[in-house]
Write a protein that binds this DNA or RNA. Structure first.
Length: 427
RNA sequence: GGAGAAAUACCCAAGUCUGGUUGAAGGGACCGGUCUUGAAAACCGGGAGGUCGGAAACGGCGCGGGGGUUCGAAUCCCUCUUUCUCCGCCA
């Protein structure tokens, strides 16, 4: 969400940004929003003048009553009644126009960073850099769910009976590998100086609508029956919600947090064959990073953050690459974003295991997250990135470490979290 | 889940019964000064946060959130949230 003042003063830039995102249909919105803003300010000025008169007149009435001049006071009351009638109309119109303005402003995309590559959709996302050699062994890599089942590590059938499609039982060493990865991710980020945090796994509707659009909410969030509570889709929801409407002290910035949570997603819609198994599920666990910082530090943090994820996967010997989101694929709220993708020796391509974004002040404006600086308050910049999400991240570890006989080597970094075990062996 | 009490500005806190002179007493912290080699203490002075409109002057809103009554609400009514105390329940 942009600042309406910015739109007013930088109409061309806003329009150019929309064109770069191939959203020409949104171009008229810019003019409409400027027009609405003008009308609203006029109404506000009118209303303020009336309110001023009402306040003054009410004070006079109070004074007259004290002087026992009841008749005079009653005459003045009439005037205030008139004012209130006028105000009612003005306020109604002002509220309606404000709602309209807000809903239009929500749709106008945030100004992208100049470095974002121009492209229509995800097919034009740009590979930035590869890390590690993508190895394809001379034996065939089975589907990850089959590997796990062969190791007695996965039971989707029972999960289907208890909970339905999109759920799973992880068993034995596979379950342990899953937990190991998350614990390692947690410690990895703590070592990088991030503050570890376990947030609420359910949030109220006002927080949900603060952090996402209604469309997203419907497609993602599970609601608790008879409660004003939703299961979080990512800890970012609770972590950003934590700061909603808050003014943080400037000296506390940057706030670098790493949060663990289970994540629940409806994943409405049908998904391809590649997404059966443990790739796209209703429930997973994630170690996340969330940073609030001064605007001028946001880009440095962005670059640090995706590099942490790359470093994390490289420490598990998983080849990765970074894929920069092009203008057409970049979500409207984001300034810049890239995915960290892990190598799949089975598919012989990379697949997404994390996503790093800087939102500039858009999220902070929407939620009212400010910092108290020497020259007044300002909106902070917010960033978020995945350290590791499992089971998905675990798929990458398994596929890149599976032996021809179906056993899986455990990366050195995870062995301490697996009781020193080096291999998950076929039974 | 039940019963009570509370929420006022950066912090503490008065005001709420009895609506208007409270755009919010009084402290503390803060800033400036006197004194001091410097600091502390003491004393003197200062400014009340946030946000919206406005070039500015100035004005609107704001006493946990939302709604209502009234010419006028921190104050009365409804509702929600949070905190505390007690009871119940429970890893």
């Amino acid at each position: 969400m942009l600042d309406i003042k910015y739109v007013r003063e930088n109409k061309e830039k806003v329009e150019e940004n929309i064109r770069k995102k191939f959203q020409e249909e949104k171009l008229p919105l810019v003019e409409e929003v400027i027009e609405l803003d003008k009308k609203i300010r006029e109404l506000k000025a009118k209303g303020d003048t009336l309110r001023q008169e009402r306040n003054a007149t009410s004070d006079e009435i109070g004074a007259l009553f004290r002087e026992k001049k009841v008749d005079e006071a009653n005459t003045k009351k009439q005037r205030v009644v008139e004012i209130n009638n006028q105000l009612e109309t003005i306020e109604k119109e002002e509220n309606e126009l404000s709602e309209e303005l807000k809903s239009k402003m929500m749709v106008i995309p945030n100004i992208m960073d100049d470095s974002v590559p121009i492209g229509k959709d995800d097919s034009e996302n740009v590979e930035i850099e590869k890390f590690g050699e993508p190895v394809v062994p001379d034996y065939e890599i089975p589907y990850h769910a089959d590997i796990c089942e062969a190791l007695n590590g996965l039971d989707k059938e029972s999960a289907g009976r208890t909970s339905g499609n999109g759920f799973y039982y992880l068993m034995g060493d596979i379950a342990r590998l899953h937990s190991a990865m998350l614990s390692y991710a947690r410690d990895f980020m703590i070592d990088k100086g991030f503050n570890y945090c376990v947030p609420p796994f359910m949030i109220r509707s006002d927080v949900v609508t603060g952090v996402m659009s209604f469309a997203e909410m419907d497609a993602m969030m599970y609601k608790i029956e008879n409660e004003d509570l939703y299961l979080i889709g990512t800890s970012e929801h609770s972590m950003i919600g934590k700061f909603k409407g808050q003014i943080v002290k400037e000296e506390e910035l940057p706030i670098a947090l790493t949060s663990y949570s289970p994540c629940f997603r409806k994943e409405v819609g049908s998904h391809g064959l590649e997404e059966r198994g443990l790739y796209r599920v209703h429930q997973f666990e994630k170690q996340e990073m969330v940073v609030l910082c001064k605007p001028e530090e946001a880009m440095d943090w962005y670059n640090k953050m995706w590099q942490f994820t790359v470093e994390f996967f490289r420490s598990l010997d998983v080849p990765v690459r970074t894929l920069e989101c092009c203008s057409g694929d970049l979500a409207d709220l984001k300034v810049k974003s890239c995915d960290v993708e892990a190598w799949s020796p089975r598919q012989k391509k990379y697949f997404e295991v994390g996503s790093c974004s800087t939102l500039g002040d858009a999220q902070a404006r929407r939620l009212g997250i400010r910092a108290k600086g020497e020259n007044g308050n300002y909106l902070v910049s917010t960033l978020n990135n995945t350290v590791a999400a499992s089971p998905r991240g675990m798929i990458a570890v398994i596929e890149n470490n599976v032996n021809e006989d179906g056993s899986v080597k455990i990366p050195k970094a995870l062995q301490p979290y697996m009781g020193g075990k080096e291999t998950i062996k076929v039974k």
